[in-house]
């Protein structure tokens, strides 16, 4: 049903920076159209705050079309909010009703410290990738022809599915253990499924897992919550594949 003008109560986590305590603060917004995206609703709120010379709510966002992985809000207890298979920026206000109260919080995880308000530090994800998320090939201009090694379509498609991870961190935020296994499993799987990834496979999985542990992410207890909240539908079969890779790397090394 179309609602052109909703009035909403927002309860938003406000925290000036990493070293001070935060709290939930209540705001009201009105005349919210159901065609608006969730972030456009946040823009309306922020314009109101700026008009009063108050500090707007800080949050990460950039592409606003579900692909850069910047946006990261925990909405009414769910990572990226109530809709399935969408990021926060793709969520639309038609998923809410007039009079609703919406709770908005940042990702909560030890490895994702809050920077300000709803903005968190996800550099731990980058450091896991530095540890092994690459294939060691130089840009020489005389790499062998791309069609020299045929790759089974099924494998290429599965590698692609794993590679679509946007690095948003919803899997971590939704997991009661704050585990990063889905994120790491996706990268390990992408390369494990491709011939180009074989040479460094053992070191890769070991190094990435070691870095993940070092960053303070929790252990995986197979609750499957990550897969449910992942906006890109990354399958937990990638975690199983990573576990197999890890096991074989430790046995044969």
């Amino acid at each position: 049903m179309s609602q052109e003008s909703m009035n909403l109560t927002l309860k938003i986590w406000r925290q000036a920076n990493a070293s001070v305590k935060g709290e939930m603060v209540e705001y009201k917004v009105s005349e919210i159209s159901d065609h608006m995206s969730f972030l456009e609703m946040m823009d309306v709120l922020n314009e109101q705050l700026v008009a009063k010379n108050e500090e707007p709510v800080a949050f990460d966002h950039d592409c606003r079309e579900g692909i850069c992985g910047s946006c990261s809000m925990h909405i009414n207890g769910e990572s990226h909010g109530p809709d399935k298979a969408v990021t926060t920026c793709q969520l639309h206000m038609r998923s809410f009703n007039d009079g609703d109260t919406i709770h908005i919080e940042p990702w909560r995880a030890k490895a994702f410290p809050v920077i300000k308000d709803l903005m968190v530090d996800r550099s731990s994800f980058d450091r896991i990738q530095h540890a092994g998320g690459f294939i060691s090939v130089n840009t020489s201009g005389n790499t062998q022809d791309a069609n020299a090694i045929p790759i089974r379509k099924e494998d290429a498609d599965m590698a692609m599915d794993a590679a679509t991870c946007i690095g948003c961190g919803a899997c971590v935020a939704t997991c009661k253990n704050a585990s990063a296994m889905l994120f790491v499993g996706a990268k390990v799987s992408q390369f494990a499924l491709l011939p180009q990834g074989q040479v460094e496979a053992k070191e890769r999985v070991q190094n990435m897992v070691a870095q993940m542990d070092k960053e303070g992410f929790g252990a995986c207890t197979n609750t499957g919550a990550c897969e449910v909240e992942c906006p890109k539908g990354i399958s937990i079969s990638n975690i199983a594949r990573m576990n197999r890779e890890y096991l074989s790397a430790t046995i044969t090394k």
Partner: peptide, 9 residues
């Protein structure tokens, strides 16, 4: 392709 970019096949 050498870097592991999964182009369609």
């Amino acid at each position: 392709v050498a870097q592991g970019v999964p182009f369609a096949r």
